[in-house]
């Protein structure tokens, strides 16, 4: 069926107490949700605030809520999400809104720090470079999880994040899982302690919403289940 020539686009304006504003946007071939937002900002209202950078699904900065579902907008065709000639675009949930489609990700990234999501070096430049075989069990375990682009789609889709402000969230825990499997890392004990603490991996209810929404088809819930196992093993061994 041929698509209509134009669609009604409702875009969130203002902060938490803002409202949706509706624009009419002409349809184009292979148009993405991000293209639609950009068209509105360039042609109708230059004060519209939104984020993007790469436009090809690499940087993770363009995520928004489209018809109630968090998505990466640069890789989502508008034809896929339009319902009866309409689409609703809002900022990601679970983060404070700065303006329009831009939310404040400070807490999201602070949680990466709390999850000890940074590599802890244990060697100096004088040591030989460690060889990691692509077939090593740890490397294989982290294979998928390292593809995360930090888009926060999973974080916005997670009800445990919504209900428990302490919860580190799927993205930070997924990142931690990649490091837990990094044999070069020297901060494993502290990391596992941070991950097993209140608000850590054990707070996850295995809803799988993170896995269902991740645009990179990653499975944070799988990484988190791995963390639950690792911390249980460490606890049994008396290391935690």
């Amino acid at each position: 069926m041929a698509m209509a020539m134009a669609i009604e686009v409702s875009i969130w304006r203002g902060r938490a107490n803002g409202r949706y504003q509706t624009f009419t946007v002409p349809l184009d071939q292979s148009q993405t949700v991000l293209d639609v937002v950009t068209w509105v900002q360039r042609k109708l209202d230059p004060t519209l605030a939104y984020r993007f950078a790469c436009r090809v699904g690499m940087c993770g900065s363009c995520a928004m809520t489209v018809n109630g579902r968090p998505r990466w907008t640069c890789r989502t065709h508008i034809s896929k999400v339009v319902e009866a000639g309409r689409v609703e675009i809002g900022p990601l949930a679970n983060m404070p809104i700065i303006k329009d489609l831009v939310c404040d990700m400070a807490e999201f990234f602070a949680k990466w720090q709390r999850a000890k999501g940074a590599f802890a070096p244990g060697k100096s430049r004088h040591d030989p470079i460690e060889r990691i075989s692509p077939a090593a069990a740890e490397r294989v375990a982290a294979d998928a999880a390292i593809e995360c682009i930090n888009c926060a789609v999973c974080y916005a889709a997670c009800d445990t994040v919504r209900w428990n402000e302490n919860y580190l969230g799927p993205a930070a825990l997924n990142r931690a899982w990649t490091l837990v499997n990094d044999v070069r890392d020297a901060g494993q004990r502290e990391r596992l302690a941070a991950l097993a603490a209140d608000g850590g991996c054990h707070a996850c209810h295995s809803h799988h919403s993170c896995q269902e929404h991740c645009p990179k088809a990653l499975s944070p819930v799988r990484s988190i289940a791995g963390l639950k196992r690792r911390s249980l093993e460490a606890y049994v061994r008396g290391e935690l």
């Binding site: 969130w12 938490a16 809520t65 018809n67 109630g68 579902r69 968090p70 609703e88 809002g90 949930a93 679970n94 889709a157 009800d159 919504r162 209810h205 295995s206 809803h207 799988h208 919403s209 269902e212 929404h213």
Partner: peptide, 18 residues
Amino acid sequence: MKSHTTAHRKSGLWIAAM
């Protein structure tokens, strides 16, 4: 914000947890 936060609750495993 109304419809913003509920689409993920239609998933089977979310319902299973509930």
